[in-house]
């Protein structure tokens, strides 16, 4: 998948999970910008995206990512592998 493909999968998931956030979904977005994006929310986001993209991530791969762009990069790379 390209990054654009991943974003297409991610956006509806993101909007549903973090429904109090109505700003733009960009590479620079971090958990600090989205109140509902806490550690449990992050798990839900990752697993929902895994299911949409048909890949699986190890917890250490998705912990400590600096921003949303890094998560999109990770999924784009995994789906191309």
């Amino acid at each position: 998948m390209t990054r654009e493909d991943v974003y297409a999968k991610l956006e509806p998931i993101f909007r549903e999970l973090f429904d109090q956030y109505d700003g733009p979904i960009t590479d620079e977005l971090t958990a600090n910008d989205v109140e509902q994006w806490d550690s449990l929310g992050h798990v839900q986001l990752v697993v929902a995206l895994e299911q949409e993209c048909g890949v699986r991530c190890a917890p250490q791969e998705v912990t400590g990512l600096p921003d949303l762009g890094a998560l999109v990069d990770l999924f784009a790379a995994k789906t191309q592998a």
Partner: peptide
């Protein structure tokens, strides 16, 4: 708890 949450969600 996060590890359990991963399992539960999957």
């Amino acid at each position: 708890m996060l590890e359990e949450e991963y399992y539960f969600r999957r």
